[in-house]
Design a protein around this nucleic acid. Structure first.
Lengths: 195, 195
DNA sequence: GCCACCATGTAAACAGTTACATGATTAG
DNA sequence: CTAATCATGTAACTGTTTACATGGTGGC
């Protein structure tokens, strides 16, 4: 998907908060933006080299006692300006790829039970994730008054919570539609999204 | 994203219903699976060639009066078997890329108003799409008793409706959090996803 | 005559994943 | 001693988008 390397902006954004190594960036991504924008080492290291060549970040090698090969990257004034400029532009439309829906769309070629099983697995996955997200959301809301810098993190967590909850609600609707026998009277569907 | 060409399975699935040209496939995708699995000509035509080479589909050139260069693709028994085998496998986890959340995550570097504006644009986009989806969903539900083959299409439409509604709800929460002044009392947030 | 739509494709660039390669340190 | 974690990177491959190229048909 050619655009202008959004992942590099993600890295720039993280470095805007504090200087870090590529390894640190990966970890930071993991428990912040990975749910909606993930990146592997195969993207991070080449991006850091590219950003360095462009003068948007600088490197400071070594330093840490006993581990001389650690490279700490810092954002430059130029990099900061570039990031802010990008942040102000309107964002591209969302890109999603739901293999489960693709399979389900052609679900009439396999048995109902197999489709139901797939949906239930999907549901279980996100029930777990929703639990974690809700805990994080509650936590962030509590500390908001003291540290308002967590506001934007909270917003993204809230997004996840809303969407994952929608996943669960849909999964329940779907199973009820496919297996009208188990649990609800035929034709009965609860929830407001259908009315 | 290496996997094993899921888009080819999408094409196979569409051809399983009825023989079509590459051009027809593109249009069919547009108003069926594009919301969760889109594909352009640059993927469709090469995929069709590949599928033909593998013997999963066959081509019938010409035929249509006055337009001799139309190629109609049909799925083979082998293709059908391959599709069904794939449908039965567990699906990979969902792949998403939300540029708006990436920008919002670094929202503290730009003004609150700009973030709010971005969220409102996001909201407007999906409000429109939700309207269309809900209309389609209502329609599909009505014709379900006569034509149960639309069941799986309905399920994917319901998914979209649920998720897009979640987008709208989140957008309202987010704007309220960022601008406590306009419309609601400070600290007040409606909706169940936060409690 | 022009524009929209039908219809097929290719090539280049870009984005992203996976597998590989290397080696130091630390906790059990 | 061995497993996990720290730490950096490359190369090959796959998937996707975009831009380009071509030409016919039908309506205004």
């Amino acid at each position: 998907m050619p655009s202008e390397n959004k992942t590099a902006y993600a890295i720039l954004g993280l470095l805007c908060h504090e200087p870090m190594s590529g390894y640190d960036i990966k970890k930071r991504i993991q428990h912040s933006i990975a749910r909606f924008w993930d990146a592997g080492y195969g993207q991070i290291y080449p991006s850091l080299r590219h950003l360095t060549e462009q003068g948007l970040v600088t490197v400071a090698t070594g330093g840490g006692a006993g581990r001389p090969d650690k490279k700490v990257y810092s954002i430059t004034e130029q990099g900061r300006a570039q990031l802010i400029s990008w942040l102000s532009e309107p964002s591209a439309t969302e890109y999603v790829r739901y293999e489960i829906l693709l399979k389900l769309f052609f679900g009439n070629w396999i048995g109902v039970d197999r489709n139901v099983e797939m949906i239930k697995q999907f549901r279980a996955r996100y029930q777990r994730e929703l639990g974690e997200l809700q805990a994080a959301t509650r936590n962030l809301r509590q500390v908001l008054p003291e540290s308002p810098d967590h506001l934007y993190f909270l917003l993204t967590a809230m997004f996840g919570a809303r969407v994952y909850q929608a996943y669960l609600d849909w999964a329940d609707d779907a199973v009820n539609l496919l297996q009208p026998s188990s649990g609800s009277r035929p034709g009965e569907i609860k929830g407001g999204a259908l009315s």
